[in-house]
């Protein structure tokens, strides 16, 4: 049984998750959940963001793990291999996800960082198509990847396999346009589970709110709900709201449908759209321009 579970998580971290995303993505598309908003520009951007990091970023992270760490931390390989599995699981779950919470939160709250994360929020729809959508700089500096790689080097590779597997399933499911969490708020006997779940992990309701194009409706909350695997960080720091509802619109109000290459490679390539945050002399945060009008 244990071998079977181990095999699932091993495959999940290689080809398993991309296959799940493709199957769910096709289902979402077939059900019309992208609401005709998946234009050519959005399609190219989503596909490039899905494919390129797997070819470029993964080998780079492997390079850090296999070549750089032995140089910087000689003799430390496997130093913490004695840590019991479940303690290793807890240590990594907190270290990885809390680091990502901060990486994500700072990209929203520190104005000069926003444009590196904007690409993930420009999609006017939710779903598998946009789940991997990120600017390349944001992906390369994805801080917790290096932390987790270091922990693998130090001997915690086995619990890392399970934490990253569980985390990838939760974060992917939270981005899905299939509102699978709805029964947990409506079916009586599921409600207590739903109450715990929505506070512990990210769900479509809380994460869709983070991707909303407005907070005026009391449902959308793009200035909070930063949690990725765990939502509990938002509860602790007071950066989250739970409404059990889904926003009416997604994306960013000042979106100018910037060219896919500028969204993927800014600041290397700038947008030609006038007034765009990604253009040569564009505003750092478009929201502030909208507000000052």
């Amino acid at each position: 049984m244990l071998q079977y579970i181990e095999s699932i998580f091993t495959h999940l971290s290689t080809w398993g998750l991309p296959v799940i995303m493709l199957i769910v993505g096709i289902a979402e598309f077939s059900f019309g959940l992208y609401e005709q908003r998946w234009t050519r520009n959005e399609r190219v951007l989503d596909i490039v963001c899905f494919v390129v990091p797997k070819i470029v970023v993964r080998p780079f992270v492997a390079y850090v793990g296999l070549l750089l760490l032995p140089k910087f931390l000689p003799g430390a390989k496997g130093a913490f291999a004695w840590v019991p599995f479940w303690w290793g699981f807890a240590i990594i779950a907190v270290a990885d996800d809390l680091t990502q919470y901060w990486y994500h939160r700072l990209h929203h709250q520190v104005p000069w960082l926003w444009r590196f994360h904007r690409t993930h929020h420009s999609a006017p729809y939710m779903g598998m198509a946009m789940a991997s959508r990120q600017n390349i700089i944001y992906t390369i500096f994805f801080s917790q990847i290096y932390l987790t790689t270091t922990l693998v080097y130090l001997g915690l590779g086995y619990p890392v396999l399970f934490v990253t597997g569980v985390k990838s399933l939760i974060t992917t499911a939270a981005h899905s346009s299939i509102k699978w969490d709805k029964p947990f708020y409506t079916v009586k006997w599921l409600k207590p589970i739903g109450w715990v779940m929505e506070r512990l992990i990210s769900t479509p309701a809380t994460h869709h709110a983070h991707h909303a194009d407005t907070s005026d409706d009391g449902v959308g909350y793009y200035k909070g709900n930063f949690g990725n695997m765990f939502f509990i960080w938002d509860i602790i720091f007071g950066t989250g709201i739970i409404t059990r509802q889904y926003p009416s619109g997604y994306g960013i109000k000042h979106y100018k449908e910037e060219e896919w290459y500028s969204q993927f490679l800014w600041p290397i390539f700038k947008s030609k759209r006038e007034g765009s945050e990604l253009s040569l002399h564009g505003p750092m945060v478009g929201d502030s321009v909208e507000a000052s009008k």
């Binding site: 807890a90 907190v94 809390l98 901060w102 939160r105 520190v110 104005p111 602790i236 720091f237």
Partner: peptide
């Protein structure tokens, strides 16, 4: 465009709490 004071203070406070959370397990 600069980070406002209230946000900066919240970030500092929450970062300090996070050190404890990282160490907790």
């Amino acid at each position: 465009m600069k980070l406002d004071k209230v946000t900066r203070n919240k970030i500092t406070r929450d970062a300090l709490i996070s050190i404890f959370l990282f160490a907790l397990p």
